[in-house]
């Protein structure tokens, strides 16, 4: 469920648009007011999620829609943290969420790192099959207020 305050991006399932999404997500997180490290972390997890959808969900098919929704929840939770919530929906094949696992890091081989990175960086990660087709990935990141860029006060 999205609200009027969400930032929404929709791209076809093509790797060449990953840089477009990265740029848009980076700008959005910057406008939310978070420091560079948070911006890079959010760009990386969205990139990894989209790459997995393109490669494994759509099996390389290039005409599948991917919708990304970003929401900033500035209010603060019980730990006085802000939150970034990201929802990514596709119309690709449905996968049992229990099968979506990062690989063991001791197993040194190419591939399989994307899910590990997502789970390592984000505080909550939930994969759910959508009602008719595709998957919904919901990710939440709680951020200390110290990771907000200090706003400059009015000049005196």
């Amino acid at each position: 469920m999205t609200s009027q305050n969400d930032i929404e991006i929709c791209v076809p399932s093509q790797p060449r648009y990953l840089c477009v999404v990265r740029a848009a997500v980076g700008m959005a997180v910057e406008k939310f007011g978070f420091v560079h490290e948070v911006r890079h972390a959010i760009q990386l997890v969205v990139d990894e999620a989209l790459s997995n959808i393109i490669r494994h969900g759509y099996d390389g098919r290039e005409d599948g829609p991917i919708r990304i929704s970003l929401r900033e929840i500035p209010g603060g939770n019980e730990n006085d943290q802000a939150e970034i919530q990201i929802i990514i929906e596709d119309e690709a094949k449905q996968i049992d969420p229990r099968q979506i696992q990062g690989r063991e890091l001791d197993d040194i081989r190419p591939g399989g790192l994307g899910v590990h990175l997502i789970k390592e960086i984000m505080d909550e990660v939930t994969y759910v099959p959508r009602e008719r087709i595709g998957m919904r990935l919901t990710m939440r990141k709680f951020i200390d207020k110290s990771d907000l860029v200090q706003q400059e006060g009015p000049s005196v």
């Binding site: 760009q43 990139d47 994307g114």
Partner: peptide, 12 residues
Amino acid sequence: YMDSSGVATLVE
């Protein structure tokens, strides 16, 4: 910027 596909390439 590098994502896990770049890291996987370097592992290869």
